[in-house]
């Protein structure tokens, strides 16, 4: 029994380590290929006042003058000892930067994710129940439009409409200028969170809606639905009692598989709304060649998405009893 439980876990863990290794290597390779010189990016406008000797000194201090392979191995060795390095952009330990930034992003990510899942699922079930009706047609049109909308464009539109024209929501940031985070009230925080979270949520909705609808259509045409109707059930009862149960399988998979996209979307949304979260930190780290921070964020994101997928697998087994007995 113990072996049967441990073997799949160990396999999963090995796979996770391999994925993380590849992600780290790829991210490091991309940074090496990046045209941005870390020393230039660090110095910024002061670069003109720095002599080539001082510049070489900085590079030597950072180890940027060593061959790439040696830099990577050095970083890897430190990482395995739990030392993530020092962020040059924020002038703080990487682990601290990621911790605080992730905490700032978490409400945004979580509310957007939950919102996308719940709205998308409900729309999908409703559309799938009334195939071909006007509700279904409008939900589909809406989903297709949404699916083909770029994140940043939607964010800018929302900003123009709700913040600039209507003035309902703040224009930027996680709170008013000049106020530290500890002083913010919950209402202010939510007020600043509203528009970014909604924008991010809307993007996930389309996919979940369309996939849920497809599964619902399949079920509503199946023998299960016909049998339930023959027992005297209404279409609505069939949809929510049988359909929702079946449709939550693809919805769950999608919701967890789209965690990566959620991160990607959050970068764009945080950039447009100047929201000080992990997404913005990623952009900063990339633009200013902050290798330790960027590598750590890449690893953290990969870990987050992998854990999400593992969770989806586990939940899948809970919903569908047929999967519980099949060994992976």
């Amino acid at each position: 029994m113990a072996v049967r439980l441990i073997a799949p876990l160990a396999r999963r863990l090995l796979r996770l380590i391999a994925v993380l290794g590849v992600v780290a290597l790829a991210a490091f390779g991309l940074m090496q290929a990046s045209p941005i010189d870390p020393v230039d990016a660090y110095l910024g406008p002061q670069a003109a006042q720095v002599s080539p000797e001082q510049r070489a000194l900085i590079a030597e201090r950072w180890g940027a003058d060593q061959p790439a392979a040696q830099q990577f191995l050095h970083w890897l060795g430190n990482m395995l000892r739990g030392e993530l390095g020092w962020s040059r952009v924020y002038n703080a330990p990487v682990s601290e930067v990621i911790g605080s930034r992730f905490l700032a992003s978490l409400p945004l990510l979580a509310s957007a994710w939950l919102g996308a899942m719940l709205i998308g699922f409900a729309l999908g079930v409703v559309a799938g129940t009334r195939e071909g009706g006007w509700v279904d047609r409008w939900i589909c049109r809406y989903a297709y439009t949404l699916a083909s909308t770029p994140t940043f464009w939607l964010a800018i539109l929302g900003l123009l409409l709700f913040s600039v024209t209507l003035g309902w929501t703040p224009v930027c940031c996680a709170g008013p200028a000049g106020v530290t985070r500890a002083e913010l009230s919950l209402a202010t925080r939510l007020h600043h969170l509203l528009l970014p979270a909604l924008t991010l949520a809307l993007l996930g909705v389309a996919q979940i809606t369309l996939h849920t609808r497809a599964r619902m259509l399949e079920l509503m045409r199946s023998d299960v639905a016909l049998h339930a109707l023959a027992q005297g059930a209404s279409r609505r009862e069939v949809a929510w009692r049988h359909g929702a149960r079946h449709a939550c399988l693809p919805a769950l998979t999608l919701a967890f598989a789209s965690l990566g996209e959620l991160f990607g979307g959050s970068m764009l949304v945080e950039q447009v709304f100047s929201y000080p979260g992990l997404g913005r930190a990623t952009v900063e780290a990339g633009l200013r060649s902050d290798v330790p921070l960027l590598l750590a964020i890449a690893l953290f994101t990969a870990l987050f998405v992998s854990v999400g997928n593992a969770l989806a697998d586990g939940l899948y087994r809970l919903v569908d009893p047929r999967l519980g007995e099949v060994r992976p």
Binding site: D223, V224, L226, H227, P321
Partner: peptide, 20 residues
């Protein structure tokens, strides 16, 4: 009358919901 007075025993075993 469906279900209450008229009942159907379907031909296909797929008429049972596999998740319930």
């Amino acid at each position: 009358l469906r279900g209450k007075h008229l009942a159907l025993i379907p031909q296909s075993l797929a008429a049972l919901d596999p998740l319930v």
